[in-house]
Design a protein around this nucleic acid. Sequence first.
DNA 1: CGTGCCAGGTGCCTT
DNA 2: AAGGCACTTGGCACG
Lengths: 264, 264
Amino acid sequence: MHNDDRIVICESPDIDEAVDRLNEAFNEKRTIIIVGRCRVDYHGRASSKLEPGERIVIMKEDGAVLVHRSKGYEPVNWQPSGCILQALREEDCLIIKAIKRAPREVVTIFFDRIHFLSTFKLMDEGEFSLYASEEEMRRAILMEPSLIEEGFKPIDYERRVKPGFVDIYGVDKDGRIVVVEIKRRTAGKEAVLQLERYIETLKRSLNKEVRGILAAPVISRDARQTLLSLGLDFRRVDPKKCSEILKRKEEKKILDFFRHFTNA
Amino acid sequence: MHNDDRIVICESPDIDEAVDRLNEAFNEKRTIIIVGRCRVDYHGRASSKLEPGERIVIMKEDGAVLVHRSKGYEPVNWQPSGCILQALREEDCLIIKAIKRAPREVVTIFFDRIHFLSTFKLMDEGEFSLYASEEEMRRAILMEPSLIEEGFKPIDYERRVKPGFVDIYGVDKDGRIVVVEIKRRTAGKEAVLQLERYIETLKRSLNKEVRGILAAPVISRDARQTLLSLGLDFRRVDPKKCSEILKRKEEKKILDFFRHFTNA
DNA sequence: CGTGCCAGGTGCCTT
DNA sequence: AAGGCACTTGGCACG
C-alpha cells in the first residue's frame, strides 16, 4: 500500500481496511476506483439485480457512482452526482450504499472480494469544447442566414412559442414569416411534427401565413414525405460546415482587430 | 509492479513500459484503467477538444473507451464497443488512439503523466435483470388485460402501423378496436401525439372507429388536455405493480408445475 | 445499412 | 419541482 495523499493504492485490502479507506475518501472528497467481485441491487424508478461477477466501480468526488462490466459503453448500474455514499462491513462483505433523493433511489454494492482499491485527488481544470453541435449550427445560420436561403433575415432565436422553443424565427425575401427548426443529424418524423406544431401555433396567434424550414444534414425518407404533405421546406445544412464558418468568422474578427491595431 | 496474469498494477510507469503493458492488454483483451494527466481530441459526427487535466481512462476488452473527469455520471469523451485501440510513444507523450468506422470516429488521448496503470481479466458471468420496464408493463397488461379496463381483449402487440409500432392492439367489451400506448413514466404530449397518429392511420386503413388508451403511471397536465380534446382515454398503470403481477404469475406457474408434478 | 423508439436515459435551462 | 429539448445520446429490433 502506497499513500502520498495524492494517490492511495491498496492491493487486495481486507474489508476493514477498505472501509477505512473509503470513509477517508468520502470525507476528503476523493475519487475512488475499486476492482473486485460484487453483486449489485438497485431500487428507484425501476429495480434491478446484478448477480456476482468482477467489475470496476468508480465513485467520484461529487457522489456519482458507476458500476462497469468488462464490456460496453454504458455502466450496468450507476448513480448520478449528488448522492450520499456509505461504506460498511457486514460479515465478510464490503457494502457500499449510494442514496439519492427526489426521486429516492438506492444502489447497493456488495463486494466479497476486492482485488484492488485506489483513491486520489484529481486536478482537472481543463476546458472542454464541442464543435458541430446544434448550437453552433444555429450561431452559424444567424451569422450567415443565406445558409437557409437568399434573403432570409433572422429576427429572433430560441423564441418561446406556447409550449416550446422555435430555433430561429425570421422573415424571407418576400416578407413572409419563417420558422426554422435545426437538427444536427438526420431529421426524422418528430422533427417535422415539432416544426409543424410551432407553425400551427404561430399561424393561429399571428393570423398570418407562416413558412416552415427544416435545416439538417439529411432528412429521412418518410419525414420528407410528411414534410412535403404539410407544405414545409427542407434545407440541407452541414454541422461541420457551420463549425468551419464560425471558425473563419472568429479568425476574421481577430484579423480585423489586429488590422485596426496596426492602423491605429 | 505486480503481475499474476489476472491483475497487473504499475505505479508511475514510464512511457515505454506503459506502451508495452497496453499492447499486451490489447492482445490479450484485458481491461485497462489509467489514471493520469491527459488531453483528448475527438473527431467524428462532431468534434471536441479537452484541455489537459487529470482523468480516469477505462479501455474495455471489447474496445469500448471511457474518459472520466472527477465529476458527473457521463464520460467527457468516449468510444463505444468495437473500436480499434492503439498505443504509441511520441516524444514524452503516451498516445492512445481509439478508432471506429461507420461512421468513422477517432478519439485520441495524449498522456504526459501517468499516475498509475492497471490491466486485468474480469471474470463476469453474472446475470443482470431489470424490473418495472416498459416491456414488463406490456407483458403484465397482456397477461392481465383488466389493467386497461374490464372486458379488454388484446389481439396483438408491437404491431406495425405504417410509420411505427403500436404497443398493444385489441378490442374492448363492445367490440371496438383499441390501441394502447404504454409509457413507463409521466406521459407527455409526444405520447399523446404518437397515439393519435396511430389512431388516425388505423382509422383510415380500417375505415372504422378506433379507441386510443394511454397507459402510464402519470400524465402531464397539458398532455391530459390534448388527450381529452382528441377524445382519447388515459389509464393509470403503475410499472412496479406490473412487475409484481408478473412475478406473482411466474410464481403461480412454478407452483402449478409442482402441483402437477406431485399429482402425477 | 437506415429508421424507429425506449432508456432507471443524463444534462441544461427556464418558468 | 416540472416542462422542454439536445445529446458524438447508446442500445435494440426490424424492414
